[in-house]
Design a protein around this nucleic acid. Structure first.
Lengths: 343, 343
DNA sequence: GTTAGCACTCTTGCCTCGAGAGTGCTAATC
DNA sequence: GATTAGCACTCTCGAGGCAAGAGTGCTAAC
């Protein structure tokens, strides 16, 4: 479906004005603002065509037009130029994301926070599972009679830990020895590739202190499993109070439901990792809860491997150009920052 | 200011009905529901008295009465009986808070979540700074060339960690040796009592590997400082959507502002730790942002020492009796659980 | 001290009406 | 054939009016 030049200009005008004002856009307003050398009547005819094609719609006769989801889709696919953040904003992002950062989850956290602040939309991040991440150390630290803490440190500087019970017969020296055994056995192994079977094999090799090993291995397994879980961060939801579409509680509620249900977001963004900005507009989202919202998101990679996801959530009437541009810039920054962290 | 029996009954009736329905309560409704052997006209006279005393107010002539903040205050101070959760709910709380818990912050997290689920209000927790908590181990783990992670484990099973840069000249063996030195020097020391000066002294004792030690001590100090920070957890804010007072966005917004500003809550609850349920109703809160909300909170202690705080946030029209009762019960459970964790 | 009765007040929902904005259509114009 | 001016038409939105409903305050009787 191709549009001639004038239709494209009019479609763009409607979208820009509507995104800005949240009001239906009339033919007069368009000639007044974008004065394109023809009269309002001509614009009206064109708009009627665009409506017939499904790109515009009317809330009621005698209101102006608003872009349909299909209209936004066409614009996003065929006409839109991404808008990168200005130099000032880029400096802000770079500073927030890279400075005073000590591990990856902090990078993600800061990225999400600063991105939502910058764009005025809610921002989410699905954390990376870095397969390049290797185990560096496994320690069993006694903390009280009968209790110890298992601490795993990875090359990215992530620290996983959990408590276990230990029999009284095991002393501090035994634990230290065990720590060394574990560390030696697992050091250099990629977190993702450690399987339960590997741990089983390890158990067989360490038959001596059965009980501790049993528990330690059990919780090690759990720890590593949990590190493989994708964590979801969501920030800036309060921004949305400024959007007029959230005056009625229904959309607001659907948005805030995301706060409680991590799974919704994971379902929205799916598994594919293409390192491009993708846009889902309103009902294009298969997930019922957010059919009234739009999601703009992208994947980041580290050392050529799949990382996590970053995205912005807003009303259908969203500044897709800015959202997409910001995500492009931020992805660069995040990838670089993480690369430096784990290298 | 004393009230005779009948006024007390009427005040209670107004409060109970209003809390339940969120509608102004009329004289007829009271005789119909609580039939106290007098006519509506008599109740009207009494209500006029109560209004004159400042316990009730009218949204407008010819609506029913609603309790004023002062009315709630009087009720809470002089008449209210706390309502503990039923056995079913207690079992739920105990299960949620005590089972499958591995460290204190998890206890707090779970407590907050289950309490907000149970009461239907938003729940917050200001984390404990446990002075009984001792350092058990300090480890320096090399993760990449020039990078190491400092891991501190305490007797309560908390694990603090941060990354530091190390000069290339320092090998894994050196770091291990340092770990032992640090651990030996700090083991058994209470986290709270470690001061910068102690760390300075330690530095002087370890003059040998200046640079690493410098950095390690620096980040150790930072780590311990940050562990002394009170962390704030807030859960169940979505519950509030069900309350009719949040139909207009202003109160909702003030509530959700808490999500972003931890400090607000800290300012509300202050520092005093009296291990009693305290109630702040509406404008009694000095903090501007939540003058339209009520806060019910308490402190918990561990081994006779100040722990953290737990509280519920709701509309002024709140079931104070249930909130207070639940907090009493939950405090018991939390104190016991933490005691078991650190002992 | 209590109650019944009644006039009064205020909200709420519903209706109507006019202003305003924008359209679609037709006929004239370029 | 595309463009435009003109005009009737439609729809929303806010204001104003009205009746119903709920609850009160006051007075006079019990």
């Amino acid at each position: 479906m191709d549009l001639d030049e004038r239709k494209r200009i009019i479609l763009e005008a409607v979208i820009r004005d509507y995104v800005e004002t949240a009001e239906p856009v009339g033919s007069r307003a368009i000639v007044r603002k974008h004065g394109l050398g023809v009269s309002a009547a001509t614009v009206r005819n064109e708009m009627a065509d665009l409506e017939a094609m499904g790109f515009l719609e009317q809330p009621h006769t005698s209101a102006g037009r608003i872009p349909s989801e299909q209209g936004f889709r066409y614009y996003v696919d065929c006409m839109m130029a991404k808008e990168e953040p200005g130099p000032e904003d880029l400096r802000f992002l770079r500073r927030e994301i890279t400075e005073r950062i000590s591990d990856i989850s902090e990078v993600i956290q800061k990225t999400s926070a600063s991105l939502s602040q910058l764009t005025g939309y809610a921002c989410f991040a699905v954390s990376a599972v870095l397969s390049a991440d290797e185990i560096k150390s496994v320690q069993l630290i006694p903390v009280q009679a009968g209790k110890a803490v298992v601490v795993v440190v990875t090359s990215a500087g992530e620290v996983l830990h959990t408590r276990i019970d230990i029999p009284d017969s095991i002393g501090a020296g035994d634990l230290q020895e065990l720590s060394q055994l574990f560390t030696r056995a697992l050091k250099g192994t990629r977190v993702q590739t450690i399987t339960r079977t590997m741990l089983e094999t390890l158990r067989d090799e360490l038959l001596g202190r059965r009980e501790v090993i049993e528990r330690a291995l059990q919780s090690l397994g759990d720890l590593l499993d949990s590190s493989g879980e994708e964590r979801v961060t969501l920030t800036g939801t309060l921004n949305m109070f400024n959007e007029p579409e959230f005056k009625n509680l229904s959309k607001l509620r659907s948005l805030l439901a995301l706060l409680q249900e991590n799974d919704i977001l994971k379902r929205v963004v799916g598994d594919a990792a293409v390192r491009e900005v993708r846009i889902k507009i309103g009902r294009e989202n298969q997930v019922e809860e957010i059919k009234e919202l739009s999601v703009v998101f992208t994947d980041y990679e580290v050392e050529g491997e799949k990382g996590g996801k970053l995205g912005l959530i807003g009303p259908v009437r969203m500044e897709y150009w800015k959202a997409a541009g910001s995500l492009d810039s931020v992805r660069e920054i995040v990838e670089e920052t993480i690369r430096r962290l784990i290298k």
